[in-house]
Amino acid sequence: LSTDEQERLIEDLGGHRAMILRNHGLLTAGETIARAFHEIYFLERACQAQVKALSGGAELHYPSEDVRIKTAKQFASPLVEPILQRAWQAALSLIEHQYTEYAS
Rank of each mutant, 00 (worst) to 15 (best):
Q89A: 07
L79T: 08
Q48L: 15
P82Q: 03
P82E: 09
Q74M: 08
F37W: 06
E5W: 07
V51M: 13
A76I: 02
K73W: 07
C47A: 06
A72S: 07
D66W: 04
S55A: 10
A46W: 06
Y99S: 06
F42Q: 03
E11A: 15
V51E: 09
P82Y: 05
R8W: 04
A58P: 00
E44G: 09
A91Q: 11
I33W: 10
Q48E: 14
Q74W: 01
N23R: 03
E65K: 15
Q48I: 04
G57M: 05
L13F: 03
L79Q: 15
T28W: 08
A18S: 12
E96V: 06
P63D: 03
Y41W: 12
V51W: 13
S104A: 09
G14N: 01
I33T: 04
Y41S: 10
S55C: 11
L43M: 13
H38G: 08
E11C: 10
E44K: 09
Q98E: 05
V51A: 12
L54F: 04
L1H: 08
E5S: 07
A103N: 07
L79V: 11
M19F: 05
Y62W: 15
T3G: 01
F75V: 05
L94D: 10
A46M: 08
I33M: 13
S64L: 09
T100P: 15
A58C: 07
H61L: 11
L92Y: 02
E7D: 15
Q85E: 11
R22C: 00
H24L: 05
I10H: 15
C47F: 09
G15W: 00
F42S: 00
G15I: 02
A53N: 03
L94N: 09
A53D: 14
Y62A: 15
Q98T: 02
L54V: 04
S93I: 01
D66I: 14
D12I: 12
H24M: 09
I10N: 06
S2M: 04
P63H: 04
E7K: 12
H16Y: 08
R17N: 14
S2H: 08
R17V: 01
F75I: 11
G25L: 09
P78Q: 07
T28A: 15
L43P: 02
A58T: 03
E44F: 14
E5C: 13
A58F: 10
S64V: 07
Y102P: 03
L27T: 01
I20H: 02
A34Q: 00
A49L: 14
G56Q: 10
R35S: 13
T28Y: 05
R22D: 14
P78N: 14
L9Y: 04
L27I: 03
K52H: 07
E39K: 03
Y41G: 01
